[in-house]
Design a protein around this nucleic acid. Structure first.
Length: 488
RNA sequence: GGUCUCAUGGCCGAGUGGCUAGGCACCGGUCUGCAAAACCGUCUACAACAGUUCGAAUCUGUUUGAGACCUCCA
């Protein structure tokens, strides 16, 4: 349906306000999102960013855009400190575990792919790896040197922020000004090869202990921190594409330097719209190992984290995340997750009821209006919490119809059913957990509940309660409703 | 120290210059042998102070508090 296509608004970090989304090529969207670095398992906070961009991707698809979604996989080590003397972060882990870098990368890639499935994330169209694009990175660096925005020192290449600032503006995304930066108290390290402290490495000469080394025109070494994103986004999406996303904490320096590299190599900002997803807190604080509120996305699903006393399904986690806007920080607490669990369950049950609702000749409310409100919420900077609120308005209506207090026509029911299912599963990425899904157990339960029914009819409460309590111990909850008994 | 963001009812969280989301909990009700579940209803909040305005929680200023980034970070 949706004959009226809403105007899509996107908050652009570049301007700091919501802007009308106008794709560079009509009906097509190129989107690049910074993916994981494979030297450890992504934690829950990483997942929030990926899940949010998954939702955004799903929204764009729902709006019938033809989306090319690229999310990189960083499998080459990065420089790990400002002096640049620790180049290979993956190699560092590999040395600790006494295995090869590639083993580390493979191990965590498998885990990451598994997490994508567990959390029901759509795979991007392309997941390019840094190590698969060394040549492209070298070529990008060569272009930047040619353009006069980088210099070679002793086998390493640095981006020349001062030279760049004469032609472009450095710091437009993060609101930083080079003059301000220079007033900072930081001093150039005596051995530092950089001309200016804000300069950053594009290529770093190999250290003897590096486990991954590549050949380049400047000698053996490693690519710098940010160049892979520039090289790969340009290769797969072009010099200028629609959306570039990532976590809020990547804004500076990573994204700022990406802009500089792109301007320095091809003369323009890589993206028209920059989007940043906000952080996840746990019990009111940023996740950190030292605070004891750190856990992995798999642990919370399996109930093996010490931070929470019970397990929460991926759907509950996702639902909880969808109840907050992607640009706001979100706090995970036992209370908030318990609330999400119940809310999600209420939603699931209403969606199930859609299939068995009785229809009438009239509808009490306007179904197209409800559906329009879904689109409107989604089109307002991907406002998932409002979308859920509107869906819950529909849930209330579904329940009323189910109780015979409201009516719906067959045609409206079909429409509502299709759209609610679409928004819940396709857009929000929630999967409806089927109740009574165990094919073997179902006939057994029918039998047991039939016996209990007879007992109740004979007012044999001892037997009926024995059955109910026994099933409860087995983890099966009996629900005596108006129209018979159900279980789950 | 610099740059910036945010402060919403018991909790999580949207949003808006006047019509004051949503989820969860609480309370009341319907249903029920009892209970649970389910459903319905109710609860009227926006840090403090001052200002602008016919009118602000929403705009401005000050104060207090929290957080982020400035170093790898989703």
């Amino acid at each position: 349906m949706s004959t009226i296509k809403n105007e899509l608004l996107i908050y652009n970090s570049l301007s700091g306000q919501k802007e009308k989304f106008e794709p560079i090529h009509e009906n097509k969207v190129g989107m690049y999102v910074c993916g994981p670095t494979l030297y450890s398992e992504p934690h829950m906070g990483n997942m929030r960013t990926f899940i949010n961009f998954d939702m955004i991707y799903r929204c764009l698809l729902k709006l019938n855009y033809q989306v090319k979604y690229v999310r990189n996989i960083t499998d080459a080590g990065h420089i790990t400190n400002s002096a640049g003397d620790e180049v290979d972060s993956i190699g560092k882990v590999a040395r600790l575990e006494q295995v090869q870098s590639l083993e580390i990368v493979y191990k965590y890639n498998v885990k990451f792919q598994e997490l994508q499935r567990i959390y029901n994330m759509l795979p991007p169209n392309i997941e390019p790896t840094a190590t698969g694009h060394i040549q492209e990175q070298i070529e990008t660096i060569e272009k930047i040197i040619e353009n006069g925005f980088a210099y070679v020192v002793n086998g390493s290449v640095y981006f020349d922020v001062k030279a760049y600032s004469e032609k472009f503006e450095y710091g437009t995304l993060s609101g930083r000004v080079v003059d301000e930066l220079s007033e900072e108290t930081r001093v150039l390290n005596a051995q530092d090869e950089k001309r200016f402290f804000a300069d950053f490495a594009l290529w770093k000469k190999a250290n003897p202990e590096d486990m991954q080394i590549w050949r380049s025109p400047w000698g053996d070494g490693n690519p710098g921190w940010h160049i892979e994103c520039t090289a790969m986004s340009t290769k797969y999406l072009g010099a200028h594409f629609d959306i570039h996303g990532g976590g809020m904490d990547l804004k500076f320096p990573h994204h700022e330097d990406e802009i500089a590299q792109n301007c320095g190599s091809v003369g323009c900002n890589p993206a028209k719209y920059w989007m940043h997803a906000n952080m996840l807190n746990v019990n009111g604080q940023k996740m950190s190992k030292s605070l004891g509120n750190f856990f992995l996305p798999k642990e919370i699903v399996e109930g093996t984290t010490t931070v929470f006393e019970k397990a929460y399904s991926p759907n509950i986690i996702r639902f909880s995340m969808m109840q907050a806007h992607y640009r706001s920080t979100l706090d995970f607490t036992a209370d908030s997750l318990d609330a999400a669990e119940k809310g999600f369950s209420r939603l699931s049950e209403a969606v199930e009821k859609l299939a068995v609702l009785k229809t009438s000749t009239t509808s009490s409310i306007s179904i197209p209006d409800i559906i329009q409100s879904f689109y409107k919420a989604m089109s307002d900077d991907f406002n998932a919490p409002i979308l859920l609120a509107k869906i819950f308005d529909a849930v209330k209506y579904i329940n009323s119809v189910n109780d015979g207090k409201a009516t719906i026509t067959k045609q409206d029911l079909e429409l509502l059913s299709v759209e609610i299912n679409s928004f819940v599963t396709d857009v929000l990425g929630l999967t409806m957990e089927k109740l009574n899904s165990d094919a073997k157990l179902a006939p057994v339960m029918d039998l047991v509940l039939d016996i209990r029914k007879s007992a109740r009819e004979n007012k044999d409460w001892t037997t009926s309660d024995k059955i109910r309590d026994g099933l409860a111990i087995a983890g099966i909850e009996v629900k005596d409703g108006k129209e018979g008994t159900t279980w789950n």
